[in-house]
């Protein structure tokens, strides 16, 4: 009855491979992969909400919050330790999400989506008007350190890349287990039938609240890593198009498996880079077409391709 699940083992292998490959990757590709991993963290949280039937169009709020936490900690407070900052930004995002979550957990469908979008746009509006934080231009982020060690500019991208790999691995590992847990299935139960959940003695609101806070913390970590590798933050991170991009990636990858978000995020970055190269003025057309094709032919995302192959393999 129980199918053997090799995901944990495969994730460990993928983690080691990513670390090794990092040593030989050209700079541009290492940068692209780090950004993809960082965005995938946000998408994993978003997918968790989508599995519960909720689409957030405002994960940019926490993505931006994470980025600005790194910026402010380095520039204004003199805190540059990468690991410490990740914890701090997750904590701050968690606190804000706990506050907003009290309201949001009562809403579903389009109302949930619009409210999350509204909150992210409030942050955008505030940042744009705050000249101390560079208004629309944002500001540069101080170079991070690792447990007191200051990597040279040449080493920095490798350090952030490795950190991103580690954080992404831990996220994928624990989120995969989370999807299989009682709380993970509670999300699907809420999506399918809230009345039944209520009569099983569990509050659907509480389930949504917990997921919203977890997703926010993941998004903040993703934003922090982006700030560390890009060396710059600006209010665009909270803009609705950034949040929309996460939804795009989630649809591209699919919600079937935790790894789907990572595959989706990586492909998204690759497609965008190529599209930008091919058509500097109309690259959005290529992205839009890709999304349309995915929705038409793979409504459950790229992951459904892998799943179909697996099922086919078992039958042979």
């Amino acid at each position: 009855m129980l199918k053997t699940d090799n995901t944990s083992r495969n994730l460990c292998i993928a983690f080691v491979l990513l670390l090794l490959v990092g040593l030989i990757l050209p700079n541009w590709l290492a940068f692209l992969t780090t950004i993809a991993l960082a965005k995938a963290m946000v998408v994993v949280g978003l997918v968790m909400l989508m599995r519960a039937g909720l689409v957030s169009f405002g994960q940019g709020l926490y993505y931006c919050l994470g980025g600005y936490t790194v910026g402010i900690a380095g520039q204004h407070l003199g805190i540059t330790d990468a690991v410490g900052i990740l914890f701090v930004s997750a904590f701050i995002a968690g606190c804000l999400a706990a506050l907003l979550g009290l309201l949001l957990c009562r809403y579903r469908e389009i109302f949930f989506a619009m409210l999350t979008l509204a909150f992210s746009m409030i942050l955008y509006g505030v940042l744009v008007k705050t000249s101390e934080l560079g208004s629309t231009d944002g500001f540069n982020v101080a170079k991070v350190t690792l447990l007191g060690w200051q990597p040279s500019p040449g080493q920095l991208s490798l350090v952030v890349y490795s950190l991103a790999c580690l954080v992404a691995f831990l996220t994928a590992f624990f989120m995969h287990r989370y999807y299989q847990s009682g709380m993970g299935f509670a999300g699907e139960a809420v999506r399918e039938n809230e009345i039944r959940v209520e009569y099983l003695g569990v509050s659907p609101q509480r389930v949504v609240f917990i997921k919203y806070v977890l997703a926010a913390m993941l998004a903040a970590v993703g934003g922090s890593i982006t700030a560390m590798i890009a060396g710059h933050v600006d209010p665009e991170m909270a803009y609705w198009t950034t949040s929309g991009e996460f939804v795009f990636v989630a649809l591209l990858g699919g919600t079937g498996h935790v790894v789907a978000a990572f595959i989706g995020a990586f492909l998204f970055e690759v497609i965008r880079t190529i599209a930008f190269d091919l058509a500097p003025y109309t690259w959005q057309m290529i992205l839009g077409t890709t999304l349309l094709l995915v929705i038409f032919f793979l409504p459950k995302g790229l992951w459904s391709l892998l799943k179909a192959k697996k099922v086919g393999g078992n039958n042979v």
């Binding site: 624990f174 299989q180 847990s181 009682g182 709380m183 993970g184 509670a186 959940v197 003695g201 569990v202």
Partner: peptide, 16 residues
Amino acid sequence: HAMLSKKRLGMQAPMK
């Protein structure tokens, strides 16, 4: 069963 049990819903222990 998971929801009705006296314990809190686990986040890591597999339901299956």
